[in-house]
Design a binder for these strands. Structure first.
Lengths: 225, 225
DNA sequence: GATCCACCTGTGACTTCGCTCAGAACATGC
DNA sequence: GCATGTTCTGAGCGAAGTCACAGGTGGATC
């Protein structure tokens, strides 16, 4: 996945920034645009390996951008972002040559996963390594499976995403806020104590290996290598 | 991080001064403004790498300033400052193109950290080094861990911030007032002797290395390299 | 060497934070 | 439509952290 170039197009700058910093962190090269025509211009300058297109743009909408891209012969995959509750959009999106679809708000983790999935499907080069290990814990993204010292343990989707995020940042303290942004939907406005609850679940399921998931009081959590 | 230019906008002169002197000290170039229109004029003269904007300004509010800046095509990151207990502001802030958010009162330490984080995210040059060493003591910000001669020692959040501040200024005497401003919230109105208490805690936890944390009677404390 | 004052450090009250559990609300699969 | 799993909240508890206070210690000054 390293080195792939992604174009993020969203008129809300805060979202474009949030997404692009998360993707940069995940090892992609990212450029952004806030308007449809700017996006087309950006592609003329440098063709990305994938584009994340918001549907609602100030000038021409994301579908139209995608249609023009396909018309110009570009075949890189496109993932659409759209506000909730517009199910009819889905068909429109795929009709215009979209490869995947996400409704806002979404979790950055999920976006990263979908991007990777779409890139893999489209045959772009990925590093093909979807397994992470920290200490005795191994997480396999493809198999969606976690093993501790060789024994498979069952995790719920949220537990899995949380563990994955922690494992992507071994030895780095992640604040509850960061965790909420990445693992939960980015505008999740519930109680931050869900994180505590899920850390508790994870520790229990991880058994003795759960001890490497440390609390840094007043700061956040770390998975110590 | 060195050399980045930051614009601080706050109508309370004492706060603007406090913040700007702390940021100058942290190696930034700082300019200040006390009103919204002055801030816009200052940007016209010299475009900063980041702006710290108070929301409550006498003429136009911080959000409006940010909106105008974005409208003029400026994309440098903005951090908003606002009084507590206005959670709905947060969304407004991000809606207007803000990159981060802090509620008053805050510690200067935290502001410095956020500025660095935002600059890093926005791709501006930072020194990217989150480890400091003085003598046998090493402090790692990411891991939120302190080691003395290789042995990890556990510190409370306040102890950690205090040590961090001292380590950022090896060989320089810091007064209790400076320490209170930087490590505690700037309007902390308690007894300045907390600093003594925490220096005492630190010395005990640092063991023999604690001897390099010297008292300069009548002046303050130094960490001797 | 007496006195003063800044600083040190132990004690303890109080607060904050995080862990865990129980359960309600919701989603999913059979 | 029932059973099961999942998500998230809220309360209670205990541990950890914060800070004031007060008695003790030891330079500095005269």
């Amino acid at each position: 996945m390293a080195g792939n170039h992604i174009l993020v197009v969203d008129d809300e700058e805060s979202i474009a920034d949030l997404v692009s910093s998360a993707l940069r962190f995940a090892g992609y090269e990212v450029s952004t645009a806030h308007e449809g025509y700017n996006a087309l211009r950006a592609v003329k300058r440098s063709v990305p390996d994938l584009a994340v297109l918001d549907v609602n743009l100030p000038d021409i909408d994301g579908f139209e951008v995608c249609r023009k891209l396909r018309h110009d012969g570009h075949s890189f995959p496109v993932i659409f972002l759209t506000a909730r509750d517009q199910p009819e959009d889905l068909r429109t999106g795929f009709g215009h040559g979209g490869d995947d679809y996400m409704t806002k708000p979404f979790s950055l983790e999920e976006l990263a996963l979908r991007i990777e999935a779409v890139l893999r499907r489209s045959g772009a080069s990925t590093d093909g390594n979807h397994r992470v290990s920290v200490g005795e814990i191994t997480l396999d993204e493809d198999a969606h499976q976690v093993t501790v010292a060789g024994n498979v343990i069952a995790l719920s989707p949220t537990e899995f995403r949380l563990l994955h995020y922690l494992m992507l940042n071994p030895g780095r303290v992640l604040s509850k806020g960061q965790i909420l942004d990445y693992v939960w939907e980015y505008d999740f406005d519930g109680n931050a104590s869900v994180v505590e609850t899920y850390v508790s679940y994870l520790r229990r399921k991880l058994g003795s290996a759960g001890r490497s998931l440390e609390t840094v009081r007043g700061v956040g959590y770390v998975l110590r290598p």
